[in-house]
C-alpha cells in the first residue's frame, strides 16, 4: 500500500495523518511534508501513525530528524502510535526514549 498523507488541525496542533507503508521509498515524501509544515510556520506538529501498517528504519530516521528540526524551529513535535508492531521497533531501537510518543491524538494535543 502506498503512503497517504493528510493534515487536520486539532486544538491548535497540526495533525499529520499517515497511512500505508513508510519505507525507504516513501519516507522521503513524509520528510518533505513535515519540512513543509515547519517551514510554513506551524508551531505544533503531531504525526499520527494510526493507519500505518509498516515502517522501517528509514521512517524512524525521518521521525528523529523531524523531531530535531522541530526543536530547532521552536515547534513542538509528537508521534501518535498505539500499534504494538510499530511500538516494538521504537523499543528495539530505543527511540521510544528519544521521540515523544503518545497513545492517541487527544493525548498528544493535550500535552
Amino acid at each position: 500500500m502506498e503512503l497517504s498523507l493528510a493534515t487536520r488541525v486539532v486544538a491548535a496542533h497540526t495533525v499529520l495523518e499517515v497511512g500505508g507503508e513508510v519505507d525507504v521509498y516513501t519516507a522521503p515524501k513524509l520528510r518533505e511534508r513535515i519540512t513543509e509544515l515547519l517551514d510554513s510556520g506551524v508551531t505544533a506538529v503531531v504525526v499520527d501513525l494510526a493507519r500505518v501498517d509498516f515502517m522501517d528504519s528509514t521512517g524512524l530516521g525521518v521521525l528523529v530528524g523531524a523531531n530535531r528540526r522541530a526543536g530547532n524551529a521552536g515547534a513542538t513535535f509528537g508521534v501518535v502510535c498505539s500499534r504494538e508492531s510499530l511500538l516494538k521497533i521504537f523499543r528495539i531501537t530505543a527511540l521510544d526514549q528519544v521521540l515523544p510518543l503518545y497513545p492517541s491524538v487527544d493525548a498528544a494535543t493535550a500535552s
Binding site: S57, T58, L60, G61, V64, G65, I92, T93, L95
Partner: peptide, 15 residues
Amino acid sequence: EEQLTVDVSASLLQA
C-alpha cells in the same frame, strides 16, 4: 541522518 538510519537498521536486524 544517513548514519542514523544505518545504525537503526543494524540495531533492528540484530534484534
